[in-house]
Design a protein around this nucleic acid. Structure first.
Length: 272
DNA sequence: AGACGTACCTGACCGC
DNA sequence: TGCGGTCAGGTACGTC
């Protein structure tokens, strides 16, 4: 379900509930996700204090005392929710972590998510984390950087900004939205973007992600934050899911195409 | 090396 | 009402 703004929303909502809490018990109900869950997860997590919680790309990282980090990825349909101690498990609950006075529930119908436990000081060597590009909201993500990594790439620009090796956190929705804001067609090849285009695109990616975070993410289908609140950025989409509707700038129809099997929305008149 | 297709899954929705 | 087909926010991997 989530792109960077949704993961960030979950993280911020979780923070007051979990940081400083101690794990009383971790129960594995259904150990099958994208990767098998660590077989000794229950033992590894027992009695550990949660020192901090952070985000890298779309991964949520629970830093535990004793040098371990619990890594969680929500995939397409993963949810991390805070529940009361009398919570009863429902379909697709995979893991339930009991804290002092709350439960943390991981539910994931499609099982594209991921849970792992790694040594905190070896996070950067982790197979899934070691090849990730820069965070789009950090100062290291600049037009000069983007221009450099795109210069030899023949792929569509939309596919490029969704490639986690180039930059992280931008998924299918915000890729379309950022390209619209930048006035750049998703059908441009990455290596045709000039520095000037990259300046517009970097700025648009940052603006779109910030705006979405400020709206609590996007709740299309069933995204709900940990605290049960829905995000409302979906009401601000300019192009995503609006095939055939009027462009808000030029009033010509927004077009839906497929690129690498993924829906892409854009305005052929405004995006060149 | 880079580009592209495929695979992993369930559920919601649409048209008949 | 029920059925089959299609689509969905992610990402790793195999193959060319």
């Amino acid at each position: 379900m989530p792109e960077l703004p949704e993961v960030e929303t979950v993280l911020q909502a979780l923070k007051p509930h979990v940081v400083g809490s101690t794990i009383a018990k971790a129960s594995v109900l259904f150990p099958v996700l994208r990767l098998p869950l660590p077989h000794n997860m229950t033992e590894l997590l027992a009695s550990k204090l949660i020192i901090n919680i952070k985000r890298r790309a779309k991964y949520i990282m629970f830093e535990l005392e004793g040098g371990l980090t619990l890594l969680v990825h929500l995939g397409m349909t993963g949810r991390l929710t805070v529940a009361n101690l009398d919570y009863l498990p429902v379909k697709h609950d995979h893991v339930i972590i009991s804290l002092n006075d709350k439960m943390l529930v991981y539910n994931d119908p499609r099982r594209f998510g991921l849970i792992d436990i790694i040594e905190t000081n070896k996070i950067h060597e982790h197979k899934l984390l070691c090849n990730l590009g820069p965070e789009p909201l950090e100062s290291e993500f600049t037009a000069e950087y983007l221009s450099e990594v795109l210069k030899n790439r023949q792929i569509f620009i939309k596919a490029a900004i969704m490639d986690g090796k180039l930059l992280v956190g931008v998924g299918n929705i915000y890729a379309s939205e950022a390209l619209f804001m930048a006035g750049i067609s998703p059908k441009r090849k990455a290596n045709t973007l000039h520095l000037q285009d990259c300046e517009k695109l970097v700025s648009s990616i940052k603006k779109v992600l910030h705006a979405a975070i400020n709206s609590g993410g996007s709740s299309i289908r069933d995204f709900v934050s940990t605290d049960g609140n829905k995000g409302h950025f979906q009401h601000h989409f300019a192009v995503y899911g609006k095939g055939g509707k009027e462009c808000q700038i030029c009033f010509k129809p927004i077009v839906k195409i497929y690129q690498s099997g993924r829906a892409t929305f854009f305005c052929p008149n405004c995006q060149l």
